[in-house]
Nucleic acid binder design. Structure first.
Lengths: 354, 354
DNA sequence: CGGTTGCATGAAACCGGTTACAGCGAGATG
DNA sequence: CATCTCGCTGTAACCGGTTTCATGCAACCG
């Protein structure tokens, strides 16, 4: 009888450490040690404490623990959902989040989504993030590139709180970042198009002020020179990472005097826009123009023709960010920026060769 | 000079309430009241406290506050990333999350992503969620339908913690759920196809054990009877919400004796698969077969022909969930299930009419 | 003018953990 | 046998807020 009742209560009981100590006939200190420094407490005592704890469903109160230790085992996620075009979506936010959450959980950390400077009411100050972190005793922070540069982010990265940024370099003694090998991926793309016999290779870039945009353009240029192909100014058109921008950029490329026979598009969403513009011009992919995108988002495989693209290690972002932030929390030196390898996924938009 | 230093320090100082009280020449109790019960403290005193607080950059410690009040102003998000096919993605998780976070932030709550029973190490027990909630003094919980039914979820919803589920009915005195008007959406789809002159309307359903799957099928059937169209058993094929399932289901429909001239597909991803199967069979959409999907995911607009579909109020999910959970936290009666309206988005796959 | 009322405030206990320090008994050592 | 170690445990202070209760004081009333 009794055990059953106890089992039932276990979900509900709000036993404190003193209660548990009383039941075991030991002091709260010993109970605390039984959990946090098991090796320092006598084996029999420890066993009894743990057993009794299970019976009465004792759960340590994390707020009290955080208060005493100043460690919350929580990492903040800064992800600005304002300042955005309506409907803006990070190309693979969900995959990053899964990777991040899984890796953090595995290391004993939880993830707290921080309110954005925009969506908390009166507290709209520049140091809103820093304030939130301090209030909640967060051990570290991960920030996901918001496209626009929020001065609060700089404050945060320079505040000395362990801080990992995705896809954007940051300054600060305990700040680092994770990014894909954007230049390398671009080189893969250009090289692939070259192997397929294309020689007039244009590019639609991301916004110049974004890191990935700039890096992918750099890779494109580097690979062209390596291959001994000429750099034609008219072959570089800036897009905005959105479908409409890709569409517009492609139209500009088609209207120019010289038509490319291949385009490296620095983002899959833009590539879908480009695909459409090409279709509207009465041309065919890949026969008239081959296309290689970047990101390997879900649509890339679904749209006809399916899109050859440079794939990023999406879950790897989350894992790498978690590793970096946890190691800094544990006192390790600030790790260098982590560059994740990219891979080429060949699909219909670049095959068959000419 | 001094003010500047103070401003600088403000980010760093770890002033406590006693420190602040000392500086103002009042007791900690008064400071606490100045923040939490402003009306009960003398106007001049209050002003001075707030001003000084700003100067020295005082920030209340949330752990201490939670410890004392047992309110954490945090809501847990249960989102199981295990048990999944690799690469599984909720059709519009990101939009829901944005809505949820924004609505919660606006109400003064933060969102804590709970580790899944799977990804925390030793603690893999059935009451893992309940334990996490209690340890962190979470005020409430939102659970996003994980597709598979985890017994821990039932424990959670029946634990008496304010709890809102998305797309799945739940039991529990302080538990409710938010869902789209799936049946109504299905009726819209069928009605639309009927208006377009189609009479042999088949359906590819979601898994029967999922709520949205069952409801959409119900709506389809209801609308058929309302329109006086016959229910042909062969016209109902079960899919799995994934592309491949939609593809397979469509093939079964095409192989049958009687070919439909329209199909209501209970999910956009399946609809893309169906689109493909139809193309492979040498038929054309919408000329031979019209298609209406469900969800209005991003690809729906991108795939050719673009997909007519039943749109769900994606951000509305998050907002409604936030409203419900916060109202329960504030002691209101458990609100009834919230059914969000759906709308028909007409695109190429169902136009022009026959 | 004594007593009531109400406002503003302070003292101290409390929330539930952690941890520095002291103490205690048993076995080892000189 | 006195002393020193060592392993284990308890006492009590502390983390930084909130809240109950008591109190001082001024205004108000008859």
């Amino acid at each position: 009888m009794k055990p059953v009742t106890a089992r039932c209560d276990s979900v509900w009981s709000v036993a404190t450490i003193r209660e548990l100590a009383r039941l075991c006939g030991v002091s709260p200190a010993t109970v605390s040690r039984a959990f946090n420094n098991p090796e320092v407490v006598n084996a029999k005592t420890r066993e009894q404490v743990l057993r009794t704890a299970r019976q009465i469903g004792y759960l340590p109160n994390e707020s009290a623990r955080t208060l005493a230790t100043k460690k919350s085992f929580m990492v903040g996620l800064v992800w600005d959902t304002d300042h955005r075009r309506p409907g803006w979506r990070h190309p693979f936010f969900q995959e990053i989040l899964i990777g991040l959450k899984t890796a953090l959980s595995g290391r004993g950390y939880h993830l707290l989504m921080l309110a954005t400077s925009g969506d908390m009411g009166g507290e709209r100050t520049e140091d809103a993030y820093v304030r939130a972190v301090r209030r909640h005793n967060l051990d570290g922070v991960v920030m996901i590139d918001s496209g626009t540069w929020d001065p609060s982010l700089r404050q945060l990265s320079e505040s000395g709180i362990p801080c990992v940024s995705l896809d954007r370099p940051v300054e600060g003694s305990r700040a680092t970042y994770v990014t894909s090998d954007n230049a390398g991926g671009a080189r893969l793309a250009v090289q692939h198009l070259h192997e397929r016999g294309r020689r007039a290779i244009a590019t639609i870039t991301g916004p110049a002020h974004t890191r990935p945009g700039a890096e992918r353009l750099r890779g494109y240029r580097e690979e062209l020179s390596r291959l001994g192909l000429p750099q034609r100014p008219g072959f570089v058109v800036e897009g905005d990472f959105y479908l409409s921008g890709g569409h517009a950029a492609m139209r500009r490329l088609l209207e120019a005097d010289e038509r490319p026979d291949a385009v490296f598009v620095a983002g899959d969403e833009m590539a879908v826009g480009a695909l459409r513009a090409i279709g509207e011009a009465g041309l065919k992919v890949p026969e008239d123009i081959a296309l290689v995108g970047f990101d390997d988002i879900e649509v890339a495989a679904l749209v006809p023709p399916s899109l050859t693209t440079v794939a990023q290690d999406k879950a790897g972002f989350g894992t790498a960010a978690a590793e970096a932030v946890v190691s800094m929390i544990n006192g390790a030196d600030t790790p260098p920026p982590r560059i994740l390898p990219t891979t080429l996924v060949v699909r219909g938009s670049s095959t068959p060769p000419l």
